[in-house]
């Protein structure tokens, strides 16, 4: 909706309010950044709003190396790099069966998967813990991938099924005439055509996996396997009074998200709106 007429005064007021609000939103981040870049004595003596006397880039190196932020971050990156494609492949196969194979149980199976969206993670933790302990999968990557992929399935199927349904069925028939089997139909036709939906899902799944906390808290207890969320908490525990270092750690963990966000902002916004409409 465009406005019919805008009084210049109203426009100026609008900018003032927006700039003020944006400043309020940015202050917490700036305060964290200022703290992270100060030396310990600088933090104690200079006013809180002052720029660092001398930028202490060493804080970052210390958090990165001794604080093990590098380890937590590469662990998380590894989990994301395996979990996201694996999960989406599994969800896409299922969504394909639900939409393009004349499956008699299609609607009831879809409803069955949707039930999963109603179940909070908490309602599965104890049995999952028993199961992973019995199968010796606690603190192993297969166990982590199993659990992480599992919780992505209902949402992934919901999104992909919604998109696959919009791909015209005539394409399937022409593929059949060209001698494409179902696997070929999946790889050569449906997957490439569904790329916009898949791209959105990749971004969302990546962020959800990167930010995951509860599952990591319960199922990854070995420090050398910790992800960024549980890692940051243990980092906070170990450096509770070392404020400059702690904030360097916080800032380090913000950066990857910021980069992904700036690169793919379009997907975040359109994807969120699209996924909800679908």
């Amino acid at each position: 909706m465009e406005e019919l007429r805008v009084h210049p005064g109203i426009q100026a007021l609008r900018y003032t309010v927006l700039i003020l609000l944006a400043a309020i939103f940015l202050i917490p981040v700036l305060f964290i950044a200022f703290t992270a870049l100060k030396s310990k004595s600088d933090l104690l003596t200079s006013p809180f709003y002052a720029l660092p006397q001398k930028f202490q880039w060493g804080n970052f190196a210390e958090a990165w190396n001794q604080g093990k932020m590098s380890m937590y971050m590469s662990n998380t990156a590894f989990i994301c790099l395996v979990k996201v494609p694996l999960g989406i492949m599994i969800e896409a196969l299922a969504a394909f069966a639900l939409t393009r194979l004349n499956f008699k149980w299609s609607n009831s199976m879809f409803a069955f998967f949707l039930v999963g969206m109603m179940i909070p993670i908490q309602a599965t933790l104890v049995p999952l813990n028993i199961f992973l302990n019995k199968t010796h999968l606690v603190n192993t990557y297969p166990g982590i991938f199993l659990v992480y992929v599992g919780f992505g399935i209902p949402f992934g199927i919901l999104i992909l099924r919604g998109f696959f349904r919009t791909i015209p069925k005539e394409i399937d028939e022409s593929a059949l005439i060209d001698g494409c089997g179902d696997m070929g139909k999946f790889y050569r036709i449906v997957l490439p055509l569904a790329m916009p939906a898949i791209a959105t899902l990749v971004i969302f799944d990546f962020m959800a996996t990167w930010n995951e906390f509860l599952l990591a808290q319960i199922f990854i207890t070995k420090d050398s396997m910790r992800t960024i969320t549980t890692g940051l908490l243990s980092f906070k525990g170990e450096h509770a009074t070392d404020y400059t270092l702690m904030n360097a750690g916080v800032l380090i963990s913000i950066i990857p998200t910021l980069v992904v966000y700036l690169l793919f902002q379009k997907y975040f916004v359109s994807g969120l709106a699209g996924s909800v409409k679908g």
Binding site: V115, T124, I153
Partner: peptide, 12 residues
């Protein structure tokens, strides 16, 4: 999808 869903969410 079904096996993982049953193992991770439904049965637990």
């Amino acid at each position: 999808a079904l096996v993982i869903y049953l193992t991770v969410i439904f049965v637990p």
